[in-house]
Amino acid sequence: MSSGPPASDSRTLKRALADLSAGARQRELWGHLAWQDIKQRYRRSVLGPLWITLSMGITALGLGLLYSQLFDAEIGTFLPYITTGFIVWNFILGCLTEGTDTFISNEGLIKHLPAPLSVYVLRTVWRQSIMFAHNMIIYFIVIAIFWGSVTTPDYSITEGGMPQPGLNWGVLLAIPAFALIAVNAGWVVLLFGIASTRFRDIPQVVTSLINLLFFMTPIVWSTDILRDKFGESVGWRDLVAELNPLYHFIQLLRAPLIGNEQSWHHWAIVGAFTVVGWLLALLVLRNYRARVSYWV
């Protein structure tokens, strides 16, 4: 007997795109499922989803106070920097870790509900977006407290660091920046989700690399620290940040939120990842879409 779908099963780009289109049209379904996920997670909790925000606030405050002293940075500019970095990081982290489990955790629905695979991808991305919105409460509180520091022209994250323009109308760039990151989250969840159904080691590999990725990414430290320690010409040390894709994703959204100078090379690099990532995801969806229900 055959262990998989017939060879004639639709391995065409048209069917893969149709899956994405059909999933997008079923926004009531994936929107409801995502909200139910959050309600279920905090069932019988007094604060409910606000525990997400409280946990984020405590972590950002604790590490902000610690690292501002270690790096001799002003708390008024460093705490907004680290808080915003944490918020963006947690969105990316959630899409990575929960994305690998997207189809595995939806095994029952996949086998019994005739829905496009993209419904489960959108469910994961939308759930993470809701959690991101909750965490943004912390951002507004921190910005309100340190408004004078982050709106001062030519302020710096650390002492002697690169002067920043300060918070202004450029903050509106955060809207398209988040939209672009969310679009990338789609291909990450789709690609890693399908791969994880076939190779069950992938979620463990991703989880084991999370701590390394966190400390290698400028979240609790700034690139100004490298320049301060090694001078303007930091050589290979500068590549620690520039060759890290997560740095560009985080800085894309963090920079406008705290009034940092927005470099357009971040947009170019993230844009390139968007195109390449979706091409790979569509290729995998085209070839293995019908096999997911057999693999989960």
Score class of each variant (00 low, 15 high):
P80V: 00
E232Y: 05
V188Y: 08
G148L: 04
L285R: 01
T217V: 05
L212C: 04
E232K: 07
Q36P: 08
N135S: 12
R198G: 11
T97R: 13
P116N: 09
A272T: 13
G235N: 11
V206P: 05
P49D: 12
G161A: 13
N106A: 10
F78E: 07
V171I: 15
W169Q: 08
G277P: 00
F178Y: 10
F178R: 06
W221T: 00
F215M: 13
T151N: 10
Q164E: 06
S263V: 05
P218G: 04
L191Q: 06
H134Q: 03
I181R: 08
I175D: 07
D224M: 00
F132N: 02
T274C: 12
I250Q: 09
D201K: 14
T151C: 06
F178V: 06
R27N: 14
I225T: 04
R25S: 13
A272Q: 05
T102Y: 04
V119G: 06
G23S: 15
T59L: 15
L17W: 12
V183S: 11
L96P: 01
V206C: 07
I137Q: 01
S129T: 01
W51Q: 04
C95N: 08
P153D: 05
P203S: 12
I225K: 10
V46W: 15
A281V: 01
W221V: 00
F214A: 13
T197S: 15
F192Y: 07
V220D: 10
W264Y: 06
P245M: 11
G108P: 03
D9W: 13
R286H: 01
A22V: 13
A281Q: 02
L282R: 00
G94C: 02
R43C: 12
S293D: 04
I141K: 01
V296C: 09
L213I: 03
L213N: 04
A174S: 14
I145P: 02
